[in-house]
Design a protein around this nucleic acid. Structure first.
Lengths: 136, 136
DNA sequence: TATAATAATGATAATCGTTATCAAATTGAG
DNA sequence: CTCAATTTGATAACGATTATCATTATTATA
């Protein structure tokens, strides 16, 4: 039976209080400020647990260590080709439903049943797009 | 200046001759049968090179080592929740264009410019869907 | 509230996938 | 064919993550 732990709660809250998608290491350093006795293994262990219960989401980075997303609600990720920052894109229900239908039809192409989907978009973020235009 | 190598060619062809998405290790074992002197470092090195030139694509697996896809043409990946097999979904030009427009609009939500996108669908593949129905 | 069972922790060793190093072999321009 | 540049294969090193395990924290129950 699963027991409460101060550390797990702290890890969850720390992640939820951020808008970015930190690595386990970043989160560890962050938490050590408030909870100096915490160990890195505890951070990895709980991040895994929280993923399994669906409270957070693990993100496989193109290169470098895994990242974590404190928002389990389905949304789209955008990664900038220039600054490599990851942004969330939220869409309204109508758009979501449309997207889901499209996804479902795509799965049917191979006789499969779609449960979830994961969409990544790559390109230039607002900031880097502007910088690019200034320098040209 | 880039030079030809028997090994790189063998790695590319071996990957292209498969319909699955093998790990570097699997590919290495596969190639050793025909080219016993090849080293694992050569496989990793060339897979990286081939990715950089866009001839193949690296796939970040949810857990376990990276996988490689010999088909650089844009397509959608489906991963089965039950057997974890990865399937390709190809879509026709009309569907692709529609999808691209949708992606472009999504990026505009955060003021970004979409260059590429990557879509993963999860659920039950044809085979596992059938098995599930039989057992219930 | 005290006890006891069980789960979680933190330190650190071990593991895994991948990359770096480097002497020897291969490739290709002249 | 020669020679410079690139690639190779063996293996050491690395970084991220997981496993181990004695100690500590949590919680059900007396």
């Amino acid at each position: 039976m699963k027991k409460y732990s101060r550390q797990r709660e702290m890890i969850l809250q720390s992640l939820r209080n951020r808008v970015d998608h930190p690595t386990a290491e970043t989160l560890y350093e962050d938490i050590k400020a408030k909870m100096p006795e915490i160990g890195i293994a505890t951070v990895y262990r709980n991040l895994s647990d929280l993923c399994e219960t669906g409270q957070i989401v693990k993100i496989k980075s193109k290169n470098g260590p895994d990242r974590f997303d404190g928002n389990p609600e389905p949304h789209i990720h955008f990664e900038c080709d220039s600054c490599h920052e990851i942004y969330d894109i939220y869409i309204h229900d109508v758009q979501t439903k449309k997207m889901d239908n499209e996804i479902q039809r795509l799965a049917e192409n191979i006789g499969a049943e779609a449960e979830r989907s994961n969409i990544w978009i790559y390109g230039f973020c607002k900031k880097c797009k502007l910088l690019k235009n200034i320098n040209n």
